[in-house]
Design a protein around this nucleic acid. Structure first.
Length: 575
DNA sequence: GCCGTTTTCGGCCCGACTGTTTTCAGTCG
């Protein structure tokens, strides 16, 4: 897609202009880049259909940027950008990835020392050629070296499933302090993004210094970036940064709103405030006379602006503000709404625990049912079950259900499997045995690298199988490790809708598949979904909230998620 | 450079912190 290439160029143009001290233009280019990144349609198609005029209809794209897009589509480059590149041939992305380095410092280091990339930056710092420069110093030079070290060993963003448990510990410790009146997570963590850059916390305290001292001396802290009265920032042993801000009570809601983001949501919200004659910042909502009219809670800020309170998971400027104004925000599925988990592996295949142990763990979580979905025979490495083993396992489940019934438990174990979709779209278990399952999940576990048309034919055949109820982890991505397979999501959703097949929201932290935007598209296409943990151990049943959070980010309601329904209701919906 | 049921000109989000400075620039979120 050209959208991404153009977005990258416009972002870099913004940085170049920033270096030259040009005002406002960088913001314009950044905005255009952001729009392009999130644009559903291919900019090439837009141009081919409607020419320059259609390009200018894209928000943030005006006369000048439209012409640059046209130039890029016709010639493969943008002269205005190439000029900057010639003047300043540096790897800007790489350089400003170093903590404390920005475009201005990068420019000075190129002009004075000829630094064009990370390697040369490191050489210059090691040779102590940076410290003597005007505006730099020994401390800056040391920070650059440390930043490079961090960059080398850092794996970038962290999984929600890694960051959230860590943050919950810190938050609990903060809330336990007698000096802390109130504390919350903020940032992408509070919005439950699938990956997290750093941990943000807010607190109210009459003794900020004490709280800050506590914060920077936590056992997992390896470096203190900053230690102020209202803001402190540290690096954790685990390799990510965390920030704490202490906020006065009267501004707490405003700060929580502000630091929860997203940036895009906040910019749009701020504009709404401006349009109504207010000013919104992290201290509150202010009228023209600078009187604070809201800020203690988030609710009153949104309310004053004529908006319903917006759950943090929705704050991405993807239509939630208009929905909040018009009273049509979704009634999001709640973290307590799930009645059962349908994708759990037991010790008949790769899993660690017996069916009974799983059933009792699910009962303890307050579930009404659990579905055992063992791998099937094609997956040798996971000890997949063949037809005979599946039937024997089913008899064990029947016996267990009787036992639970005798104990007076209102709980049922459902008989399922996670069968394999072979390259030709057939399932590796006979129809006769599939028919004896309460439900059948099918998934792609082999030959991931298939051309798109073949992969779609494969999925189509599987979804047309009269026994296949659910497709597990539909795009196959593994966060930070493996790309999706070649799935045409729009077509997948059409097929799911037409065949009545349910798509899985896999809650396993490395998967989160479907992802939030695909969940939103599935909901809009009228496709039912199921949130499953894919647990191979009873401890992993606790992954469920990660899946729920992504469903919420995808605007999903209870009606969209079949395992938020009572067992009898969804079982009749299955094929 | 973009945008406008307040504007086709005059706005664009802005405050905290660090490190370098003798009053502030650069970076970050």
């Amino acid at each position: 897609m050209k959208n991404r290439e153009l977005a990258k160029i416009f972002n870099e143009l913004a940085e170049y202009l920033e270096m030259d001290g040009v005002r406002f233009k960088p913001y314009a280019y950044q905005k255009a880049a952001l729009t392009l990144e999130n644009l559903k349609d291919n900019v090439e198609d837009i141009y081919n259909h409607g020419g320059l005029k259609a390009l200018k209809a894209i928000p943030g794209v005006g006369e000048s940027i439209a012409q640059k897009i046209e130039e890029y589509l016709n010639t493969g480059k943008i002269e205005y950008y190439e000029e900057f590149r010639r003047k300043l041939p540096i790897d800007l992305d790489e350089l400003i990835a170093v903590e404390g380095m920005g475009p201005k410092k990068a420019k000075v280091l190129f002009e004075k020392l000829g630094v064009t990339n990370l390697r040369e930056l490191e050489e210059a710092a090691r040779a102590n050629r940076i410290a003597p420069l005007k505006g730099f110093g020994a401390k800056t030079e040391a920070n650059i070296l440390e930043g490079i070290e961090f960059l080398k060993k850092s794996t970038g963003r962290f999984l929600l499933g890694e960051a959230l448990p860590l943050a919950e510990q810190v938050l609990a410790a903060l809330r336990a302090l007698p000096e802390v009146e109130q504390a919350d997570m903020a940032g992408s963590l509070r919005r439950r993004k699938e990956t997290i850059g750093d941990l943000d916390f807010l607190a109210v305290s009459s003794q900020p210094e004490k709280v800050m001292d506590f914060f920077v001396s936590r056992p997992e802290v390896v470096k203190v970036h900053g230690h102020g009265r209202t803001k402190s920032s540290v690096r954790l042993r685990q390799g990510l940064d965390m920030d704490l801000r202490v906020i006065p009570t009267e501004s707490y809601g405003a700060a929580l709103q502000y630091f929860s983001g997203s940036k895009e949501h906040n910019i749009a919200l701020r504009q709404i405030a401006i349009d109504q004659g207010y000013k919104l910042n992290e201290y509150g909502l202010f009228d023209r006379e600078e009187r604070q009219v809201a800020g203690v809670t988030e609710e009153e800020i949104y309310a004053k602006l004529g908006l319903a309170w917006i759950p943090p998971e929705l704050r991405e400027d993807r239509g939630e503000l208009a929905a909040a104004r018009e009273g049509r925000l979704p009634r999001l599925i709640g973290y307590g709404d799930i009645k059962g988990d349908l994708h759990v592996h037991c010790n008949w295949n790769g899993g660690a625990d017996s069916i009974e142990e799983i059933a009792r763990a699910a009962l303890a979580l307050g579930y009404e049912y659990v579905g055992i979905s063992d791998h099937t025979k094609f997956l040798r490495i996971e000890h997949g079950l063949d037809e005979e083993q599946l039937l024997a396992r089913n008899r064990e489940i029947d016996a267990l259900n009787e036992k639970l019934h005798r104990e007076g438990k209102k709980f049922i174990v459902l008989k399922g499997c996670e069968a394999n979709i072979m390259n030709d779209g057939t399932i590796d278990i006979t129809d006769e045995v599939l028919a004896q399952m309460d439900f059948v999940i099918a998934g792609v576990h082999s030959t991931f690298k298939m051309p798109r048309s073949e992969m779609m034919a494969r999925l189509k055949a599987a979804m047309h199988n009269p026994h296949v109820d659910i497709i597990s982890h539909p795009t196959g991505r593994i966060l930070k490790r493996r790309e999706e397979y070649e799935v045409n999501v729009a077509e997948l959703l059409r097929l799911a809708h037409d065949t009545g097949t349910v798509l899985e929201i896999n809650a396993y932290p490395e998967r989160l598949d479907l992802c939030d935007t695909n969940i939103r598209a599935a909901k809009e296409a009228g496709v039912r979904m199921v949130i499953n943990t894919d647990a191979h151990h009873i401890d992993q049943l606790r992954f469920m909230p990660y899946g729920i959070s992504q469903a919420r980010r995808g605007w999903a309601e209870k009606e969209d998620i079949i395992n938020a329904w009572p067992v009898q209701k969804f079982i009749t919906l299955l094929k």
